[in-house]
Design a protein around this nucleic acid. Structure first.
Lengths: 337, 337
DNA sequence: CGCATTATTGAAAACCCTTACATTTTCTAG
DNA sequence: CTAGAAAATGTAAGGGTTTTCAATAATGCG
């Protein structure tokens, strides 16, 4: 029933091809793997047999023989596909070039599924692991640190000692942003923290804190939306009914939009009274009105590079640099003055 | 270097476990696979050995022996992750329950990559194929029809003869919607067609046409954004500078937002002058202001059911129904009167 | 206690490749 | 034409499972 077995047709293996071409299976293998020791003439015979029989090498058997699967596991937080689109495209395109397959795994915030995923990865003998780590819990990161496998963190700086990472330095981005405002005498700055992307939010707070410290001040302006609040929208609406700030910083576009909507409801004019910056750019930050100021980043490259590094790791190349920082560009749009 | 080989540590296989437990590898295999013929006592010995050695069965070897990989390939159109989020979650969650792995493949609109993907699927011996088919070209569908493998179409009605499909009947949705307006004497209705999701758009047009026909009219109101137009936003802006309609229907949220923005620019009031319905609901249809009227669908279930059917297909169960239609609910929000 | 069953275990083939090493063929030069 | 070297090919051992069939151990019964 499986392996597309239509019952009658005999499975076509390397043996069939060998027989058809009148050579040994070793020769066929060599032709498949583009070894250059095969005589031109026999190579042609074999190739003809391959075409005639429609032979496709069995990657499973190859995996067993070679002890590698040319498959790498990708772990992303549940619900991240909205903003991870281009990253995945870059990753998949690159994987295709290097003939790697990608298996997909998601983690749900709050539930420590990492053990389960690792178990799966071990059993399926994936060659490596790429993790989009903007929402893993400390416990999950801890779990990962005990796991020996070529690993690339994607999105944020890896917390593991040995793993590589490809990331955008959002901490620095926020630092620069906040510094700019502080220099202009504005220090009524808040960061919205909905606890869905703790890893990232913590970075933002660090960046802001650093800027404040350098100005001899202390940053305490984060609005944490409690985890037990179902409707963060209502929470924010209520918040902005009683509070007003000069600059609001959000991580994701959805939060930025919520801020705009709730401010509008409460007659807070953006950007006149309150300015707003969304850290992560998305197609929606441009579609929404007012257009949301944000940091433009090379998402596609982020994914592509992560995969690229993974191939290096797997080919045994020495990867000297462990951290790859990609550039962002701040783009002021209509939510900032 | 691969298979997490730290060089020194010996790979732990079913042999190691057998030796450790003082039984044959056949017995270990039986314990792993929860065969009930093993004596309670020996089972315990084996399980202890497994834990002691930290043994994890090699899925690759299992795949070879069993001629199945418990992996299914998922093909989605490039750039669809925005709106496919929940579908994938449903799919992955269900896959997890049935212990299937998912490999991810994307197709770029306009490029026929299906052959490449099929080649890959054959080589990697995936057990089945799930396709999110709202943007495949006719050529790609054609290619798929020649391919013998358990297959489930997801999103739209499958065009293949044999394959199963799980879908939302958007044709019917549009039919009902348009009929309602026609009944109210409104027939100035257009569908925005940006040619990125031809499969789906064609369905919408069919639904509208049917409604028009029943009213003795002919539907011709689709605005096709030419493929060579880079900025569909500009195109629409230009369009609405000179045209106005009673009802605009779009497929995706991004198109709906573009319509709202361009109408606003051209001082066309929504919903007073122009009403707008977005077929596919998304988190953004609720976040945007005005909130965009749309059809609510059980996206998660869509993915979950597709995977569920796949498992049935693979376990050899007879799947009597080939088409699974899930319900939609029209939700009028602020872009309709 | 001995035999016929039945429950449990083991041996070995199969799954389909790769590759080290052995063997054969081809080529080169004397 | 032949020895020796180089190139091409073949043989067979692995890679880690599952599973059939044979062998052994346990059980029940007279």
């Amino acid at each position: 029933m499986n392996q597309y077995g239509n019952g009658e047709k005999k499975r076509v293996t390397i043996y069939s091809v060998a027989k058809e071409a009148g050579v040994s299976l070793a020769t066929v293998s060599r032709v498949i793997n583009e070894s250059d020791v095969v005589k031109e003439n026999t190579k042609k015979k074999v190739q003809e047999a391959i075409i005639k029989l429609g032979y496709k090498p069995n990657a499973v058997a190859q995996g067993l023989a070679l002890k590698k699967t040319t498959t790498i596991a990708l772990v992303v937080p549940d619900g991240s596909f909205n903003y991870i689109d281009k990253v995945i495209n870059g990753l998949l395109d690159t994987a295709k070039i290097y003939k790697y397959n990608i298996t997909l795994h998601t983690t749900t915030a709050g539930i420590n599924e990492m053990n389960e995923i690792i178990d799966n990865v071990v059993k399926s003998r994936a060659d490596g692991l790429i993790l989009y780590n903007d929402a893993f819990s400390a416990k999950e990161i801890e779990t990962l640190n005990h796991f020996q496998i070529p690993m690339v963190y994607l999105g944020n700086k890896g917390t593991g000692e040995s793993a590589c990472c490809v990331y955008i330095d959002y901490e620095q981005a926020v630092y620069e942003l906040v510094t700019r405002y502080l220099n202009n005498g504005i220090d009524d700055i808040v960061i919205i923290d909905d606890r869905k992307n703790p890893t990232s939010i913590d970075l933002l707070i660090r960046g802001a804190s650093k800027a404040f410290n350098e100005h001899g001040k202390t940053f305490g302006g984060f609005i944490t939306i409690p985890e037990d609040v179902h409707n963060s929208y209502e929470f924010l609406s209520n918040y902005f009914a009683h509070n007003k700030h000069k600059l609001v910083i959000t991580y994701r576009d959805s939060q930025a939009i919520a801020v705009i909507n709730t401010c509008t409801e409460n007659n807070i004019r953006i950007p006149d009274e309150t300015e707003l910056v969304c850290i992560k750019d998305s197609r929606y930050t441009d579609m929404f009105r007012p257009r949301i100021s944000s940091f433009i980043v090379p998402s596609y490259d982020l994914g592509a590079l992560a995969m690229r590094i993974m191939t290096k790791l797997l080919s045994g190349d020495i990867v000297r640099d462990k951290e790859f920082k990609l550039n962002y560009v701040y783009k002021a749009k209509e939510t900032t003055k």
